[in-house]
Nucleic acid binder design. Structure first.
Lengths: 268, 268
DNA sequence: CGCCGGGTTGATTTCAGTCAAGCAACGTGG
DNA sequence: CCACGTTGCTTGACTGAAATCAACCCGGCG
């Protein structure tokens, strides 16, 4: 299984980890754009805005480490962040990759707890930060904000559940197909686009090795998926969808289909 | 991968357990005992209590189905609940197993959304239910309750992240070792206990087949783990811990992507 | 140039799933 | 009471997917 480096990489982190914040207090983006805040009233939004600042990171910069105390709520303004989980023995597992608009924290944390993952920038990234303490206070005053935070957490839970489902039940090829489909724009049937990050990371995200990913891509070629390094083209999205369903049909074990029809209410 | 069949198991338990469909408004347990409510003030707690009712289920009973509208917040008073995710093609994946004190919902849901998993009782189980609407209202009035709900969600996120980590990075043997360790009481070094549910379910939880689980157990026998159907004995917990770490040392991979510095403003 | 880093490809191995058989424990019905 | 079918678990033989090991290619760049 894909583990993210670790050992060697750590020290190099340390060295470069001075996290130079090009604290380009750059243009604060409208908070309204973040799903987390989409449904807030103007007043609360305004108060939040006062507290916000933006920091930028270069590729590979550590944003925070597993175990650090949570000091701020962080939202991705631009770029990608990978969340890594470090086991005591030292090897790292990629847990999730977040992009624009998502929050970096596992959940908008209130209490002064510790992160249980590390976060690292993938490519140049800017992060909006809100001091955790003040955020907590605001939350206790604004039920709407609390509700929004809870919604945010729910979104993440849904995401993680999806992840688990696909890890437990789907082949590498299938996971890749799904991943590609998730990147295809909705309108056109044939499309071409660029992977948001390099294949190494895609592999880690899907929970396979680089080599396996490469071979999976090769197999999908037959279904109209071509790649050239980071560029992907899909001949027909609908066709790929079909093939995706096809791949599912592989592993239908016992014909029983888990029918427990003893009680009438059944079916889906 | 293990998909849950759940087909036949129902009836036998029904018989054995003597199925009490008793909606015995039975003794409402003190809400304070649930982590979710542990930190609430008396007043809120009292209001919650008024709304609460307890329902009991027999093994295999469906508590709710993926897609159902969320009508209540549910907490496990006694027993176990398994959460299943059903793919469109029909096969089910076990997402999580929850036990006493945990909430069944993915997150205390406010809006009238749908469950994205199904829940089924494992063994005789009683569930505390609070009408979702009223819970939501209370939450908007009591920041403490909102905070508690958020905490609950955070716990779940942490749990799911752990799950993902272990699925991505660990062998079946290792996952099993970890699972066993999690069941060992803290104080003694050698211990024996009974699995909370049958091996079939344990297998599903670990994301392997029944057969693989059995073989894993066989391999752990060498490390002082014995089983006899549902009873487990561990010769030495510390030893098992060591072996657990040993199993980790297997796979140390390559220097990960992560730190590069293609974009000029880098350094530090 | 030559040397990366990222990606591909091939050969080999290993882990875990599948199929199939078998066994002990239990309850049921003859 | 015993034969029987279940259920839960274990074993064995086989297969297949993906990891591992190892070249190798190619575009960029010092």
């Amino acid at each position: 299984m894909e583990k993210m480096s670790s050992a060697g990489s750590l020290c190099s982190f340390e060295r470069r980890a001075g996290v130079r914040k090009v604290n380009a207090m750059s243009e604060l983006p409208p908070l309204r754009d973040f799903p987390l805040f989409a449904s807030l009233d103007e007043a609360t939004l305004h108060r939040l805005t006062l507290d916000a600042k933006v920091e930028t990171y270069a590729d590979g910069d550590v944003i925070f480490r597993q175990g650090d105390a949570v000091a701020a709520i962080m939202l991705i303004v631009r770029g990608f962040v990978k969340l890594l989980r470090t086991a005591p023995c030292g090897d790292e597992t990629l847990v999730s990759i977040r992009s624009d608009g998502a929050s970096v924290n596992d959940a908008p944390t209130v209490t002064g707890e510790a992160f249980h993952v590390s976060a690292e920038a993938v490519g140049p990234t800017s992060i909006l930060k809100l001091p955790a303490g003040r955020f907590a206070r605001l939350m206790s005053e604004s039920p709407a904000l609390a509700a929004a935070a809870l919604d945010d957490a729910k979104r993440k839970i849904a995401e993680l559940i999806g992840e688990i489902e696909s890890l437990k039940a789907q082949s590498a090829d299938r996971r890749l197909a799904r991943f590609i489909l998730s990147l295809c724009p909705a309108n056109t049937d044939s499309c071409r686009f660029r992977l948001p990050y390099d294949k190494r990371l895609v592999a880690a995200q899907l929970g396979v090795t680089q080599e396996t990913l490469s071979r999976s891509f090769a197999r999908l070629r037959e279904f109209g998926v071509r790649t050239e390094t980071r560029d992907v083209s899909v001949e027909s999205v609908t066709r790929l969808c079909l093939q995706y369903d096809e791949l599912a049909r592989q592993g239908l074990p016992y014909p029983s289909g888990g029918r427990r029809s003893e009680d009438g209410r059944d079916a889906v």
